[in-house]
Design a protein around this nucleic acid. Sequence first.
DNA 1: AATTACGTACAGTTTAAACTGTACAAAGTA
DNA 2: TACTTTGTACAGTTTAAACTGTACGTAATT
Lengths: 174, 174
Amino acid sequence: MVLKDHRSLEETHTKVIHEFSKTLEMFGLTPADARLFVTLYINNGPMTLDEMSDALGKSKTSMSTGIRGLLDQGLVERVWKKGFRKDLYRANENLYKNFMSSYIQKWQLAADEQENSLKSIENDLKEQIQTFSKDNQMKQADHLYKRIEDMRSFHQLISGAFHELDPDNQFSSE
Amino acid sequence: MVLKDHRSLEETHTKVIHEFSKTLEMFGLTPADARLFVTLYINNGPMTLDEMSDALGKSKTSMSTGIRGLLDQGLVERVWKKGFRKDLYRANENLYKNFMSSYIQKWQLAADEQENSLKSIENDLKEQIQTFSKDNQMKQADHLYKRIEDMRSFHQLISGAFHELDPDNQFSSE
DNA sequence: AATTACGTACAGTTTAAACTGTACAAAGTA
DNA sequence: TACTTTGTACAGTTTAAACTGTACGTAATT
C-alpha cells in the first residue's frame, strides 16, 4: 500500500503541474518554464537541479537553462543552505503579485513603445504627404494616416485599462 | 518621382504592419496572423487573397489558411461584391472592442476551467489523504493541498480583475 | 595534490510550427 | 460541353524551438 500511495500522490503532483501550467502559459511563460515553476511551487521546500530533473523527467541541462530564465523573470530565487553543495531554488510566493504586476508592466511597456513608434511613423508620413502629387496616393496616404490614429488611440485605451488593473496602482479598484 | 513616392508609401505600410503586429501578437495572435490582419486593417477597402499574397510576399495558400484563422476568431469578415469572382475580406473595425473583449473572455474561460480542474483534483487528494499512513506522506499531501488552495484563489483574483476590465461589463470603470 | 561533484557552454538532435507547390473540386465563362 | 478561374486539401520542405549528451571549468572533499 505504501508504494501505491506514493505513486498516486506523485501522479497527483504531475496532474497539478500540467494543469496549473496552462494558466502560467497565459502569462507568457513557455510550457517548459511554466512546468518547472509549478514543480518548484508545489514542492515542500527548495529543490536541486537533480530533483527537478527527476520530477519532470528532463535533462539536468534543461533544468539549468530553465531556472536561469525563471531567475531572470524574478519568479524563482536561489536559496543557501550551509554545508550543502548543490544549488537550491525556490519559487517565489504570492502568485498574484508576481505574475499580475509583471504582466501588466509588460503591457504598459509595449504600449508605450508602440505609441512612440507609431508617432514617429506618423510624422514621416506627414512629410511624405507633402511630396505627393497624384490624387490616388493622397487618398491612400490619408487612409493610412487615419488608421495610425486609430492604432494610437487603441494603445491609449489599453494603457488605461491595464493601469486600472495594476495591483500596485493605488487607485485601482481592488 | 512618382515611382519613388509609390515605393516610400509602400515602405511605410510595411513598417506599420510590422510594428503594429507586435501589439496584436500580445493578444495571442501568431505573428503570421497578426501581419495578415494589419494588412487588411490598413488597406483602403477589402482585399483578395492574391492582393494579400502580394502585399506580404507569402503564398496564396498561407493567406487562405491565415484568413480562415482570422475568420474563426471573428476578426475578419467576408465581403460580397456582385459581378466579382474573387473572395474579398475586410478587417473588422473597432480594434478595442474586438481584441480586448475577446481577450478578456479567453482569460475568464481559462480561469473557470482551471477552477473546475483544480477543485476536482483537490477532491481526489482529500480522498487519498484518508488512506495515507506515513507521517511523511501526510505532510507532503497537506502542503500540496495548501498550494492548490493558493492556486484557486489566484484564479479568483484573475477572474475578478479581468471582469473589472471588460468593456462589456456595465460596472466597468471605463 | 588528486579526486570527485556540480553547473553550464556548446554542438548536435528531435520535434513542432510555418510555409510552399502541386493537384484537385467547385463554380463561373465561352 | 469544354475551358478557365478560384480556393483549399495535402504532402513535403524549411525554419525555429526544445531538448540531450558530452565536455569542461570551478569548487569542494579526500
